[in-house]
Design a protein around this nucleic acid. Structure first.
Lengths: 101, 101
DNA sequence: CAAAGAAAACGAGATATTGCTATATTGGCA
DNA sequence: TGCCAATATAGCAATATCTCGTTTTCTTTG
C-alpha cells in the first residue's frame, strides 16, 4: 500500500530522524565505515548510531519508526539489520505533500 | 529570515493544521462564507474554526503555530484576524525538504 | 462609557514523545 | 551447548502536545 502523509510527517518531525533519512541519501560518504555496499543492502544500526550520537535503543526505535512510516526498509543479514531508503515511497510522499499544501 | 524546516515539519505534524494549510489554498471554495476577498486578506479565525470542528482556542493556537513556523501570515482588520498562506515560504520549505531528504 | 463580538491567553487533564538504562532476543561461532 | 556481538523491546521519568473550558484583551458600535 501507499504511504500515509501524516505518518510520514510524524516520522520526520524529529531532527534526528530527519537527519538519518537525509544521510542515507549518500551512505558511502556519510557512513564510510560501512563495509557491505550500502547502496545495495543499506547501513547497519550500529554505524548509524555512532554518527547520530544517541543511544543504541533510541536509534533502533527511530529506525523502526521510519520503517513504520514506510520511508525506509530493513533487511537482516546474519546478526546485522541494514536499513536503506525507500526511494519510491519518499518520492511519493514528497509529491503528495506538494499536491496537498 | 528564511523558514526552518524542523519548525515547519512540527507545525505540519498534526492533521488539523495540515488540513487548514491545505484548505487555505483555495479559500473561496473551502471558506465560501468569508465575505472579504480571502485571496487578498485571508480567512478569519471563526470561519476556519467552523470548518475544522475544533474549539476556538485550539484553532487560535494552531494558527499561531502555523504562523510561528512562517507558513502563514496574519493581519488584523478591526475585530477580525485574517490568516493566509505565505506562498513564498511554503515553496521554500518544500524545496528545502526535497533537497534534504 | 457599556455592551457585544472576535480573538488570544491562561490553566488543566489526558496522552504522546523523547531518550535513557536495563533486559531480552537473535544469530554466528568455538 | 555456551558465549559474544548486534538489535530489539520493556520500563521509566521528563517534557511536550493535544484540546478543552474559562478568562482576558481588543475593537466596534450604541
Amino acid at each position: 500500500m501507499s504511504i500515509d502523509i501524516n505518518d510520514a510527517l510524524k516520522a520526520l518531525d524529529n531532527p534526528a530522524r530527519l537527519a538519518i533519512l537525509a544521510k542515507l541519501k549518500d551512505p558511502r560518504k556519510n557512513y564510510p565505515e560501512q563495509e557491505v555496499d550500502p547502496e545495495q543492502v543499506g547501513v547497519c544500526v550500529s554505524i548509524i548510531q555512532e554518527r547520530a550520537g544517541l543511544s543504541q535503543s533510541t536509534i533502533s526505535l527511530y529506525l523502526t519508526a521510519l520503517q513504520r512510516a514506510k520511508l525506509v526498509t530493513s533487511q537482516r543479514i546474519g546478526p546485522w539489520t541494514y536499513y536503506k531508503r525507500d526511494e519510491a515511497n519518499i518520492a511519493e510522499f514528497l509529491k503528495q505533500l506538494q499536491d496537498l499544501i
